[in-house]
Design a protein around this nucleic acid. Structure first.
Lengths: 219, 219
DNA sequence: AAATAAAGTTAGATATGTCTAACTTTGAAG
DNA sequence: CTTCAAAGTTAGACATATCTAACTTTATTT
């Protein structure tokens, strides 16, 4: 019953909007783990606040105000993640869960000061862009490693999933942002990719791993 | 509607208990700025959780579990205050309000790390003791400046009220923790006290100010 | 000890966020 | 173009934290 629940709906709407720009009630309900009537009610309240557009039986769409409100929550989240990582020395696999709580702090001063201490950063520890105070964020043009079709050299730029388990897996494999990977072969059958990097002669990544890594081709 | 409301009731109960050990519903209601029925309901819930002892028409008393729960919230609050002051560079007049939000963060790791970074501190920026992880805190034996009855030399050790306005007043007067004050005269009529310290030749403090300053006699 | 004000309690209401069960609309398949 | 499952909506309920109005106890004052 705590936190600002609406902020969490806004965040979910933001991420679900990324594909098609619109979101169904069912999708939002699944993301928030609540029933359809609950989402339905909530969407009415969000619409009343001007954050979403919604006509009966139609999909939901964030308004520009809604987008901005969501971006400002994401800003607080990602700034917190970077602060935890850079200033407090947490690992990138630990910061998401704590930031999930910090993002609901209302004090402007607090995030203002964080922003200053971190020198107005643009990326969080997972490589995701940090929106600015106006809610605008850069949109890097990375590719998913799983989308690369022929052997080449790439640099790891961002992680699509900040879940602890996946990041621990990357830690074990010594994969960090900036790590350069030589793609040696791509198995078209199951989409698995063989890469080498640093001290690692060969690592075979399944599609489910490579589809969570944003990379940039180099050379 | 946010935060863990019960934690705020526990904190209020802790501070109101300091005098007599028991708290009336009315007192608690005033402190929390809620009506008597609201307090009454809440006290029943706190009693059900084992945090307070309460018989109909009798005053409320924190149980030892309740005391501990309150102390752990106060720990998070004061640790946050010191972190904001020491690590983030906020002024002592700014930290209370932000800590009021941070104290409701549940992550043990977060406060654990703060505690380490600050080297397991025992006092917050206002000189109040920080409870340890078991909920125990030191009980300094300071006197209120207003309780001093004859001219002497004292050191400012703690501030009874962490409100922004009072702390800004102290800033203006250049009064900090550790500042040594020479008490030159005490007006028995209205309880006002004349002190000199540092570059200040004479400052006359009203009783309402001197009763908010904890001091220790020196020499 | 009776009167009465202060303190505490009960009853009934509201707002928020949630649920299940039942009903309606939409849209895709036959 | 009818059928039907999936998606969305309505109705009615519950828990939490809050309120006002009215009633009961306690304790003080005369």
């Amino acid at each position: 019953m705590p936190t600002s629940i609406k902020e969490n709906y806004l965040k979910a709407l933001h991420f679900l909007s990324l594909q098609s720009g619109v979101v169904s009630l069912t999708e939002l309900g699944n993301a928030m783990e609540v029933s359809k009537p609950t989402v339905n009610d909530m969407v009415k309240k969000l619409a009343a606040r001007g954050w979403v557009k919604h006509e009966r039986y139609q999909p939901i769409q964030l308004t520009s105000e809604g987008h901005k409100a969501a971006a400002l929550v994401i800003r607080k989240h990602r700034l917190s993640e970077l602060f935890l990582y850079q200033v407090m020395g947490f690992g990138w696999e630990e910061v998401h869960d704590i930031a999930e709580e910090m993002e609901h702090i209302k004090s402007e001063l607090f995030f203002q000061r964080m922003d200053e201490m971190l020198r107005f950063p643009v990326f969080d520890p997972h490589g995701s862009p940090i929106p600015d105070k106006a809610g605008n964020m850069v949109t890097p043009t990375y590719q998913l490693l799983s989308q690369i079709s022929s052997p080449c050299r790439v640099a790891l730029k961002a992680i699509r999933n900040s879940g602890t388990d996946f990041l621990k897996y990357l830690n074990e494999k010594n994969l960090q942002l900036g790590t350069e990977l030589e793609i040696s072969s791509i198995e078209s059958f199951d989409g698995s990719i063989s890469v080498s990097y640093g001290h690692c002669e060969q690592l075979v990544m399944s599609h489910s791993v490579s589809s969570l890594l944003w990379v940039e081709v180099i050379l």
